Amino acid sequence: MRLTNLADYAVVVMTAAAREPGVRLSAARVADVTGIPAPTVAKLMGTLARGGLLTASRGVAGGFSLALRPAAISVAAIVEAVDGPIALTNCQAGETSNCAIEGHCGVRGHWGPINRAVRDALAAVTLADLLQPAVQTAGPVPAAVCATEKVEA
């Protein structure tokens, strides 16, 4: 499971905006700071403004700035502004799927709680959190270790 490139870039763009509170940023400036191509940044900033996460101002002193405090903007809100509702499967995203087992799927009803758990995890992380230095982790647990652990019934 991966975020789309646009959702990933949107988080980077929003973090760049959060690093300069109260400043109106142009797409060109954010592109310079982030290394994301300017046309992509401009598209994302427009999308994020329509999603209520950035405010847009026109004119000589125009640009984009955060619409809310960094602590009030979650990663989930950013992802949803770009990609829509967080759903790991097409059947839960409200999309028409071509799934061959859709009519008699035994797990379809379980995806809702899984989607909520993923969304809740992303909602728990804010832009304010992303402005802090990254915490080094040991990395993912290898599958072989997980497979050897005893499961309690």
Rank of each mutant, 00 (worst) to 15 (best):
7 A>Y: 02
11 V>Y: 02
13 V>K: 05
13 V>N: 02
13 V>P: 00
18 A>V: 01
19 R>N: 12
19 R>W: 05
20 E>R: 14
23 V>M: 08
23 V>D: 14
27 A>E: 03
34 T>H: 02
35 G>E: 10
36 I>M: 00
38 A>K: 07
42 A>D: 12
42 A>E: 09
43 K>C: 02
43 K>R: 14
43 K>V: 04
43 K>T: 11
48 L>P: 03
52 G>K: 08
53 L>C: 03
54 L>N: 05
54 L>K: 05
55 T>R: 11
56 A>E: 05
57 S>W: 04
62 G>D: 06
64 F>L: 05
64 F>G: 05
65 S>M: 08
67 A>V: 09
67 A>I: 08
71 A>G: 03
71 A>S: 14
73 I>V: 15
74 S>R: 02
74 S>W: 03
75 V>C: 07
76 A>L: 03
83 D>G: 06
84 G>S: 07
85 P>Q: 09
85 P>N: 09
88 L>Y: 01
88 L>M: 10
91 C>I: 10
95 E>W: 15
96 T>F: 13
99 C>R: 06
102 E>Q: 13
102 E>V: 10
102 E>N: 04
106 G>T: 09
106 G>S: 11
109 G>R: 09
113 P>C: 08
113 P>N: 06
114 I>C: 04
117 A>S: 15
122 L>M: 13
123 A>R: 15
125 V>S: 04
128 A>R: 03
128 A>W: 02
129 D>S: 10
131 L>C: 13
132 Q>D: 09
134 A>C: 01
134 A>H: 00
137 T>M: 10
137 T>N: 08
137 T>H: 14
138 A>P: 00
138 A>L: 13
139 G>L: 11
143 A>V: 08
145 V>W: 06
146 C>H: 11
148 T>V: 10
151 V>N: 06
151 V>L: 15
